[in-house]
Nucleic acid binder design. Structure first.
Lengths: 120, 120
DNA sequence: ATACTATATTCGAAGGATCGAATATTCAAA
DNA sequence: TTTGAATATTCGATCCTTCGAATATAGTAT
């Protein structure tokens, strides 16, 4: 009785770390952009339409957590998703979103516009 | 050229939010404990061996992001995972961990013991 | 009503994440 | 070897998260 949970904490910390790496809209966008093959940092920056430094920082996070690998080619650095399982995870999340679309949208609105009552 | 990424940002924010909810070892432990069916908050607290308030706070996060549902029964509150897809996501993560065990352990060690220079 | 058990919420401190600005590095081309 | 392009890193401000302690709420039993 009171048998503690089985998996060692280090493993859970590992998983949490991966989720943490995915827990930002920009980093999700990066992974999704890389789902069809590698892209250079510059291409990512262009497609995301964000600050160079900021994208580079997010790439650093993904690199550190080893979700992406990079390959230097002359002036440029090409990024790719390291393991397709991560893409499968995102695909599952897409299904989750579709299934729970209704509640999800409500959730988004609550989070987004926090004014008491605007339109509608 | 320079065609921005397709998915609206709100969807990516939604996904990021879910990952954020999973981005903590305790919350992963909770979901894994709930994988086989509902448990009361008290049972979760006992199995986790953590502060009552802390577990309750983590449950609040999971509730807010709608990853779990709860059912009141007299004195107690029973929690359950709302959509089995989330359990599948964790299962995929388990596979990911097994596949990348080697690098994962190194990563854990690096993060854990950050001594300036022991071996080498 | 009072007391007890189960759970949730609030608070404040400490640490972690994110951003743009500025700067550094690296490679290639002139 | 200077210049320029592509990418990375550092810095500091601001915000978000997490924790335990304390407190609140809700249900049950006396």
């Amino acid at each position: 009785m009171d048998r503690k949970v089985a998996m060692p904490d280090s493993l859970r910390r590992f998983k949490a770390d991966i989720f943490q790496a995915l827990a930002h809209p920009t980093r999700i966008a990066i992974i999704e952009l890389l789902a069809n093959g590698e892209l250079s940092a510059g291409e990512l920056i262009a497609k995301l339409g964000m600050e160079q430094a900021n994208v580079s920082q997010h790439l650093a996070v993904l690199r550190t957590k080893q979700l992406v690998v990079n390959r230097k080619a002359g002036n440029q650095v090409f990024y790719a998703v390291r393991d397709p399982i991560i893409i499968k995870v995102l695909a599952l999340m897409r299904r989750y979103f579709q299934k729970n679309l209704k509640g999800a949208l409500e959730l988004l609105n609550e989070i987004d516009n926090m004014p008491a009552d605007s339109g509608r």
